[in-house]
Design a binder for these strands. Structure first.
Lengths: 124, 124
DNA sequence: CAGTATCCCCGCCGATACTG
DNA sequence: CAGTATCGGCGGGGATACTG
């Protein structure tokens, strides 16, 4: 399983594959958004409800960024405004296994972890 | 590969396995630090060089948090100050596959991705 | 070498109000 | 419904100086 070359040429933050993936998945809400979208297309409000207590502005922001990364598509059905769907691009779908790995670690970890997380959680 | 229950009871940010994993791995420098440590124990300065352009204060901070999470151990060899080693705990080591997944996506992605990332990268 | 202490800044995020 | 506009703060992170 550990057949990864951690000693790749660019280890520097900005350029290494790790950072680049985390630019997409590591942000505060991004993983949640992608998770919701892995279950199928969603409308803005529904998405917002599913993700958690996220401000509309922030969700819109994140979605725009994820669009720029070609992870998410905004689909205004037939040009009707006020009916918009977001879904994952094919590129976005490839993040499934990545989120799965993160998820699984969290689950396995929960079983073994008997300690308090350092108070400052990602949960607001 | 997709045998993960995305519809688990707690989807809310703070409690879901995804967030908890990202609390550890998703921070700005954390993944880099863990990556360095996956290659073996390191001293503070060496670690700092390997991780990238990180301020000493921040590295010390991050290391303390990772200690609290029981991911990293600080090992003052024989009580000699000014000779300290950091290494992963057994729990920390289990993050290997997780980082590997992130890394691999970044690599595979680099090949297919023909677009500019949205300027605001994680790289300072 | 392995950090601490201090200062400052900016970007992220949240809340509220408003719009097509 | 699907956002935008605006403001405000708070804390994470960087630079620099200092210490055992």
């Amino acid at each position: 399983m550990e057949t990864v070359d951690w000693r790749s040429p660019d280890l520097v933050a900005g350029d290494c594959p790790l950072s680049r993936t985390l630019d997409i998945v590591g942000g505060k809400w991004n993983a949640m958004i992608i998770r919701e979208l892995l279950a199928g297309p969603r409308r803005f409000t529904s998405l917002r409800a599913g993700v958690g207590p996220i401000a509309a502005k922030v969700l819109a922001e994140r979605l725009r960024v994820l669009e720029d990364y070609d992870i998410v598509v905004r689909d205004a059905r037939g040009g009707v405004p006020a009916h918009v769907e977001y879904r994952l691009t094919s590129r976005g779908l490839t993040l499934g296994p990545v989120l799965a790995a993160l998820w699984r670690w969290g689950v396995a970890d929960e079983a073994s972890w008997r300690g308090q997380p350092p108070a400052s959680g990602r949960a607001g």
